[in-house]
Amino acid sequence: MNKIRYERRRYTAGPTPIEKLERLSQVLGGPTISIKRDDQLGLTVGGNKTRKLEYLVADALRQGADTLITCGAVQSNHCRLTLAAAVREGLKCQLVLTEPVDGYNPQANGNHLLFHLLGVEKIEVIPAGGDTQPVMEKLAQELADQGRKAYLIPVGGSNEVGSLGYMACAEEIEQQSWESGTVYDYVVTASGSAGTQAGLLAGFLARQSDIKVIGVNVSRDRAAQEAKVLDLFASTAEMIGLRGEIRPESVRCDDRFVGPGYAIPTEEMIEAVKLVAQTEGILLDPVYSGKAMAGLIGMIREGRFANENHVLFLHTGGSPALYTVPQLFIPERS
């Protein structure tokens, strides 16, 4: 047995709640919708990366690391939470950020502000589309030359170790389903670096669950995203010795709600963020959960689900990004 599945830090006091979205379900006139509030996970402002970091940071500590190095966009939720985990553990943290298409603003609000408030040790900014891995490796070597030890975490925390966080989440959902007597037919989630969707698939497979997982893409086309999720799903299952058939058809991704590209707003996303805020008082974000909810709304409107289905939407967090795009949500004065 691979014991890595049991080597975990704890950053959240207990299971995140599942709430029925009764008003949203009524407005859409489709299946019953519930929401898994992973925006309420522990560490600064919460979000799905916290689950991955519980395993990644445990691995870093086991290896004797004193510094976490990771990468992402200027408004990366993953970078915010990795830094918060480092603070919690008394470690240092360095970030490699990719410059946005409209240029890097060192005074940017949102997550970028929080990087500085949380005490990031170093930020390295590279051009948009640049390769972050060699830059992270260079930073790690510089630390090694100083007698320090870095632990590199991939974008989104999405490798086999990080995916264990969402294997644990799948087990948590199954337990909550049993306790409430609610049978979930589908889980819908944003799909980007693939660790959340791959972990859920591995977790439901381990539990022999019939819940179907649908990923709503935030960047790639469907074929590329499904291949990425399937590869991580299979390697995660192999790492822990999961015995079960890895069926490619179980990997379902929808690329119709990406719009022009990653982190680029769409009208469907704006509608979804406003609708959930104004029916349920819950904040989504413009990059991940907003587009994932736009996908769920679109699928409901096209009749993808039966009225008797129960759909669980996984809220991956990220609300600080809302404060970087107020122009999308504040009406102009006439």
Rank of each mutant, 00 (worst) to 15 (best):
L164F: 12
G42N: 00
S25G: 07
N48D: 09
E245N: 10
D255W: 02
G157P: 08
R88I: 00
A237G: 13
R88M: 02
G103Q: 07
V188T: 03
E268V: 09
G129T: 03
D254Y: 08
S334F: 09
L283I: 09
A58H: 03
D66E: 10
R256V: 05
T82Y: 06
E249S: 15
L164S: 04
I4W: 05
R256A: 13
Q26D: 15
P260R: 06
G259W: 06
I270L: 13
G241L: 12
K36F: 02
I173T: 01
L322N: 04
R304S: 09
L283T: 05
A13E: 09
G192S: 14
V213F: 01
L28M: 13
L95A: 12
K291M: 09
G14D: 08
I153E: 08
A321E: 03
P31H: 08
I282W: 08
I270A: 15
K291D: 10
P15H: 05
D210R: 15
A65F: 00
G110V: 07
L28D: 12
E137N: 07
D38H: 02
I264P: 01
G298K: 12
V125N: 12
Q175R: 13
D210S: 15
E142I: 03
V216D: 00
G156H: 05
T182C: 09
E121H: 14
L164P: 03
R207N: 08
V229F: 04
G72N: 12
K20Y: 13
L81F: 10
E249Y: 05
E54A: 01
R207D: 02
S250G: 06
G290Q: 07
D66K: 04
F329I: 06
F257D: 04
R9K: 15
F204Q: 03
G47S: 06
A194S: 15
P320L: 10
T279N: 11
